[in-house]
Design a protein around this nucleic acid. Structure first.
Lengths: 193, 193, 193, 193
DNA sequence: TATGAATGAGCGTTCATTCAT
DNA sequence: TATGAATGAACGCTCATTCAT
């Protein structure tokens, strides 16, 4: 009995998410309006707020799902052997995160939450991300004098830095990944001197 | 004649800034309202926008000035010999930048602008910051296999990471600097492998 | 200079009130929607709330103005010589106040506020009302063993009672005034023990 | 079989009422939410509306029961000999009715319903109240030139007036009863002139 | 009877920004 | 430059009530 009810709930929630995704695909994340979402989903406004604490919660859900998709993709890849491969693996995800300044801001705002108790969709992806990268770095030819976990955190820090600069400098596509590559070369490679 | 006008202009601007600073000291940055600023400064709302492109421009001014103050302090310090000293030197600045999530967000938003043409107060401070840190790292016992400029960018990336996590994890004061120290140990020390 | 600005303000306010009055004439007070008012007045929603604290404040204004109109009428009348004349004088006002349950409720809610500092339009009319009735009762053949002011308060109390019952009992028009007449006969006439 | 069902029905209803009373004792009448009632009672929202036509019906029930309690108390009293005694007898009831503006509004809304067919709990209490007061006034030294029934209605009218003013004027406790005493002195006492 | 997800209209609010004077 | 009324698009929220199961 409880199941049946939950089913309806899940359906409604799915309808809201689907409607939102359609709208995002059309106009982007920043332009998303709660009004339009409920209209397209064919539900009442109150229903929206019964499912999502606020608009930001929907964004968390939406963006988190997208990131998870990229991580699924990334997890299928073999551990990168060098920085170039690592950057290439991460690139699609970074490109998504920087598709809109608005998206990047949201991601950043949730980036550290992984350490808190109330973990939302985006925050969870950071956990996955760390695990994946840590795994790669654990059994690799990369630097080994520090723990893979710390290395992974550094990769995250440099990724964020590269993405942040992406919004300021001349927006050539190459810059972001090139900059990241340069960072990681210095961060991950065993001492060559 | 021109001078007289400029003088009045500067006075008005100064009055606005002073009013804003008083309000910030009282309620913090996020709670600052243009309404209150013009009220306290004794000018009309329209006047505000004759002096500042938008509210963000005032924030830029306000926060930039504070950061510059910290940098003045930092520049008087002798080059740090180890990571601990480096972290200690940076700490007051980091503490200010994380006094409010809102402030941190603004700082981040302007952090990369240094590479752009239109450089605002906050962006300028990043330039100064980079120079100071680069200078420190240039003639030091820290890692030398990469350029001081790149090293400085790394210090910035890790600082941001540490500050970002500060807002999520359990907010003990120690965490932020400890985490940064750990990062920088791995980033700045000559690799021993 | 200040005057010119105030003029615009007053015009806008007048436009809002006029729009509201048109809508009320059409659909009644309860059906009044802020949305429709601003639409008809051709102003932004924010403007409405810059002029009226909330919807209730507009209602206060609207209903207060109507009551004032009735009081203007009442003031032109000669002091009533008997209860029948008194009731007849008051009747149009009572009829307005009971035109909608919603209106009566608002009037009641503001009825006693005359004694407070923050006196709104409706509350002010109660002051006028009291003065008018007191004046009538002062030099009259009505009961004189209590002050005219107290007598007037009693008239108010019985009017309210009659109106309140109007909404419950069988809604014949005669009831309200008849009941009031009966009350006032007992309240105002010299006691004959 | 029917009995068993009725029993369960009554139990559920009692649970709802008990839950509501607890909540009211805690936060007052106005803050009562159906949501919280069903939560505390451990039933579904729909169940609430299977037992009460609407929220107002529960309020009617709740407040009516309280008033009945006061009337029980009042009925044990000997007929008051003077206005002071009468006011003292009524005072606890008036104090309850003015414990919240919200309560007073509800009471008022139901006050005249006694004359209608569909008599709810609160309306019934007004019937009792009228009977009690009429009884007191019937065989008393109070005014006798008008019927006890009419006198009782006047007492009601003045009580309402006193209570209404209680919400506006300076909220000293004395005002309400003092004002009522003054009213009733003029309303109930035989002509003294 | 019981369930509880869904309804839904509308209010209040926000506040940086604009523009006619 | 200065003025300050007006803008305006959403968001959040409310919460009693309904209805399909």
């Amino acid at each position: 009995m409880k199941r049946a009810v939950q089913k309806r709930t899940l359906e409604t929630r799915a309808r809201l998410v689907a409607a939102a995704e359609t709208l995002v695909a059309d106009k982007g994340y920043e332009a998303l309006r709660v009004e339009e979402v409920v209209l397209k989903a064919g539900v009442a406004k109150g229903t929206f707020f019964a499912h999502f604490r606020d608009k930001e919660a929907l964004m968390d859900q939406l963006i988190g799902a997208r990131i998870d998709g990229f991580l699924d993709e990334i997890e299928t890849l073999p551990p990168p052997r060098d920085v170039a491969a690592l950057v290439a693996a991460i690139e699609p995800l970074m490109r998504f995160m920087t598709c809109e300044r608005y998206v990047f801001d949201i991601v950043l705002r949730h980036s550290g939450a992984a350490l808190t108790e109330e973990i939302g969709p985006i925050a969870s992806t950071f956990g996955r991300y760390d695990q994946v990268v840590s795994g790669w770095l654990a059994g690799s030819s990369f630097r080994r004098d520090v723990s893979p976990g710390l290395l992974a955190e550094g990769v995250q820090a440099f990724s964020v830095q590269a993405m942040a600069l992406h919004f300021c400098a001349l927006h050539s596509d190459r810059n972001m990944t090139h900059r990241l590559a340069e960072y990681l070369e210095a961060w991950l490679m065993p001492k060559t001197t």
